[in-house]
Computed example of a mutant assay.
Amino acid sequence: MGRTWKCAGLRWSVAGGPVLRWEGGVGSALGWGRRVAFGVVEGGVRVCVGARGNRCAGRREVGARGTGGRCEECGRLDRVGSVAADGKADDPREYRVYLAWFGAGLVKVGITAVERGADRLLEQGAVCFTWLGAGPLMAARRAEELLRVALRVGDRVPYGVKRAVRAVAARDLDAGCAELAELHRRALTLPGWPETLAPQPFSPVDHVQAFGLDDAPAATGEITELTPAAALTGELVAAAGPDLHLATSSHGVVILDTRLMTGWELTSAGANGMFPVRPFPDERTETQTGLF
């Protein structure tokens, strides 16, 4: 067996775009037209990636279809102290509340540290977004909850839904901006808006060009899991959130969620076949009927 690598995930920045990271700190900057090719070693198993910079003590095997790449114990440890799990109530940093749009009827509210800029929105695959308020963490949290209750704006949109409507959403930015504008207006007039959270003006930002969606053909399916002795070769035509849109010779444009890569030993050597691909249904423009 030749040299192998372990993926540490895809990271975004407004300045640098998408970078595929590898264990050991090395990163591979991605650009449109770049060839992406790798396989899983024959007989390989997917091992838990650990938590908060530490290896999994039990080196436990995890399922191929899970996007977390962690065993149950490491998953719990990773959530300890995280902002998402309300584990940092005393965080002194300033936060922003945002509204993110992923497609018709698909809007979420969230928060991110001011120092991170819009990186979090790129990592989530938001087609467009606007800031809503800025201030202390707990005030941002209260505003987030206020929108969930009063306006029924959720804090999560499943990635499978995002993928299925992404191509349509990229062509419908005017509708997205209009939807965000109305929610932004209503949010800032809600009673109970936290006094320490400074309202931010409506200023929509779109990521269509940053994601490469302006020129990319629509994807026809998604890879469901990585499997030993199988491989993927394709040309990168777009990327959004953790997803790479790859033009392949056998399946057209398919989407690879790079979170499926973590925990596997990967190689550049050839393999026996393609990873499993699930085609998107013909009708992909239905709007979400509930929060999840």
Rank of each mutant, 00 (worst) to 15 (best):
V114Q: 14
R284G: 12
A269L: 13
V40F: 00
T289R: 14
L77T: 09
L190V: 07
V114R: 15
V205R: 09
S249I: 08
R156Q: 08
R171S: 12
P194F: 03
P201S: 06
R148M: 12
D243G: 00
G25T: 11
A164P: 06
G75P: 03
F202W: 09
F129I: 02
V83L: 14
R55V: 15
R79A: 12
R93K: 12
G234P: 00
V41C: 13
Q124L: 10
R156G: 04
A134K: 13
F102H: 13
C48N: 01
V237F: 05
G43H: 02
A100P: 03
G39A: 15
L137G: 00
T224P: 00
D215F: 06
K88S: 15
L30S: 06
F38I: 04
R141A: 05
A170K: 01
S82F: 02
G176A: 10
L147W: 09
T220P: 03
E286I: 13
E123W: 05
R142A: 12
G24Y: 07
A113K: 08
R148G: 15
A198W: 11
C48G: 00
A187T: 07
A126V: 07
W5G: 04
G17W: 08
F38H: 11
E123R: 04
E283L: 14
L190R: 10
S268K: 05
T267P: 06
M261G: 07
A178L: 10
V14S: 06
G154D: 06
V62W: 01
V36G: 10
L137E: 02
A164H: 10
L266T: 00
L106R: 14
G17N: 06
T262N: 13
P199N: 11
G154N: 04
R21W: 06
W12A: 02
A15I: 12
C56M: 05
V165A: 04
S28C: 07
G75D: 02
F202A: 11
M1Q: 05
R93P: 02
R93Q: 11
A104G: 08
R79K: 15
A8W: 05
H207D: 11
A239Q: 04
A271L: 07
G176P: 01
E73M: 06
G33P: 09
P92G: 11
C48Y: 04
A238F: 07
K108G: 00
L246R: 03
V165I: 08
A89E: 12
V208C: 09
C7F: 07
L30M: 01
S268A: 15
L20I: 09
E123V: 04
N54W: 08
G87D: 05
V165Q: 03
V14K: 11
V254C: 01
D243P: 00
A8L: 06
V97T: 11
F102K: 01
T130L: 09
T248P: 02
D257W: 03
F102T: 04
W264V: 01
P199H: 06
